[in-house]
Design a binder for these strands. Structure first.
Lengths: 115, 115
DNA sequence: ATCATATATGCAGCATTATGCATATTATGC
DNA sequence: GCATAATATGCATAATGCTGCATATATGAT
């Protein structure tokens, strides 16, 4: 029983032990985000991002919802944000890459507003 | 710079992602402990425990001090205990295995006192 | 000096995982 | 229906890490 507890926790930590996944989680604690946004932020191939999202999803760490063509991911457990705050500090502003094709990065001419 | 931050954190989480190391850290947040105590608690070969301790030590997560033949390890950063509390809950009583040869498990006839 | 105990280190085989690539699925617009 | 865009999945291989074993060092006792 105690051993199972450790097993469970190590699996959780394992998810955090790779920078792509950690970066995804860090981004998600700011706000939910669609795959194409995460793809832009990470600067990695779509397939790769999607694969990491699957890992996180199957572990129950993130959840997703579909909106038209887009799939939005979000953190699924407040503990995750808690852990991230300890190691990464307070959450900052949402990342707004200039070349991101996603609606949230393009609404309200937000790109123009970026310095 | 931001990338380096993630790198650093993933390395930390990686340390937590294996049950032997996690168990060591969990044990250490109760109190400092000598290698032979950890060895008994984990039920693993001495060489193995020693190796994991080295990994933790080189990462700066634990520190050690020598007392005669024994080497005592302790947590080196309060953040570690903080993280563990989130995922493992409040720290419990120190583990006192009946067959542990270490002085702290044998002082004051503490073994007899165990039910 | 010799022996026993506690701890540390180096190395190698095995298992696990990461990463990239090709392709499948699903939704939208025409 | 077809084309396109967003996302997901499967697979192969390269990389990484676990784990056990043999051995080294250091301390204390006789």
């Amino acid at each position: 029983m105690t051993e199972d507890k450790y097993q469970q926790v190590t699996q959780l930590f394992h998810l955090f032990s790779q920078s792509a996944r950690l970066q995804i989680l860090d981004e998600l604690r700011r706000d939910e985000a669609c795959v194409c946004h995460l793809q832009t932020v990470l600067g990695r191939p779509q397939a790769y991002v999607s694969q990491q999202l699957r890992v996180l999803r199957e572990a129950g760490v993130v959840a997703n919802r579909k909106d038209g063509q887009l799939v939005y991911y979000r953190l699924n457990d407040p503990k995750i944000a808690q852990l991230l705050e300890i190691v990464l500090g307070q959450v900052g502003a949402r990342t707004h890459p200039p070349d991101c094709p996603c609606p949230r990065c393009n609404c309200c001419d937000s790109n123009v507003l970026r310095e």
